[in-house]
Write a protein that binds this DNA or RNA. Sequence first.
DNA 1: CGCGAACGGAATGCTCTGTTCCGCCTTTGT
DNA 2: ACAAAGGCGGAACAGAGCATTCCGTTCGCG
Lengths: 220, 220
Amino acid sequence: MAAASASAPGVSPRLLGGRQAQARRNDAMIRAAARDVFLSDPRAPISSVADKAGVGISALYRRYPSKEELLQTLCADGLRRHVELAEHALAPGLDPWEAFAGFLTGMVEADVHSLTVHLAGTFTPTPELRELAAQANVLTERVVEQTKAAKAVRPDLEVNDLPMLLEELSAIRVDDVERTTALRRRYLALLLDALRPGATSALPAPAPADAELGERWATS
Amino acid sequence: MAAASASAPGVSPRLLGGRQAQARRNDAMIRAAARDVFLSDPRAPISSVADKAGVGISALYRRYPSKEELLQTLCADGLRRHVELAEHALAPGLDPWEAFAGFLTGMVEADVHSLTVHLAGTFTPTPELRELAAQANVLTERVVEQTKAAKAVRPDLEVNDLPMLLEELSAIRVDDVERTTALRRRYLALLLDALRPGATSALPAPAPADAELGERWATS
DNA sequence: CGCGAACGGAATGCTCTGTTCCGCCTTTGT
DNA sequence: ACAAAGGCGGAACAGAGCATTCCGTTCGCG
């Protein structure tokens, strides 16, 4: 995944168009590379994205006028995924616990938290971003409410616990990406065991307040 | 805690010695400031330590020849605390679960993980550090073994899970330090609920291997 | 065969930091 | 009372890291 296609002269001769095809391929490579790189280090230099994508820096700047816009794009992608997952969990007919657990699982697998909250400090949010974030917030609240209403989680769990729990899980990280996912699954399972209703000890402090979560995504 | 004592001329006239007393006070201030600062950001500049301590940069460099040595000192402090806590948990006569839970609680309250693992990337470990780390490792293993032998934790918990779980907990962080501790207590309680033995789901992936933990503290 | 979109990657200018250095102030020894 | 010396504050220095710009090159297409 280092630098394969863009530099070899005769490789894969015009399977698709020519220059335009490369451009479209580069588009995808860059998106993917940016996701990978910034997922593992939100403050990574833009050159490492170019390196990972196997393209030059100009290819990057041709598409995104600045690093900030690239990050905003990635963040928006993450928020959209967040919304999707919440909507799926709210679909009628699902087992409440399965819906809730599936929501968390999806959030962890897509590393939505890293894509949104971790990136949030590194650029100024656009109105669109705020809009998406507000939407994600509302839907997430609804998911938690639905689950609590069905008594499918311990009653002392609050909405604002979720970002913190996701923060915990996204701190799990080893060099290998797939192994990281596997490990996160392990500790998510542990977490889910603790969240199931049943004889459990009382939680010793109130859940995070909105302000403590950084209110990066104020509901405004 | 900004800059109170060091700059006002007539304040607190020689309550203790004179220059030597200030030096000793600075010593403590600097240690504490460094702990606070690097705990909340392992890559913080050294000037922010000086600022937080309310002293100039020279006061710092008088004591520690370089940033690296300061970090090494802090890390050693953390490891020593780690060893203490493990030894305490191994003291005979304690309830196995209480010993284990107390160990984790102590590790979290002192933020040992941030002091050791998080700092570990930012300097080259000294032999003394390696020695301490090896000791901490061995004792921690013993704590887990003791707890598992007493069947006081779920059987699928492994020693190498602990660093990851501590990593999770040290990801909990808000601006206010005390509130951070309180929140960590909350999520530690959640975690302990999941660790207690009982009807729990199987964990879906093997625990971290030594190498995956970064083997920063190789047992050598 | 020539035009121009798309690139690669060096060059630029700026910011951030570890470390050094210099002049000042306050004890302390005589 | 005075001069030397320990401590100190903070400006100055040097170097690294990075976003962004710029220029020469490549290659498909008309």
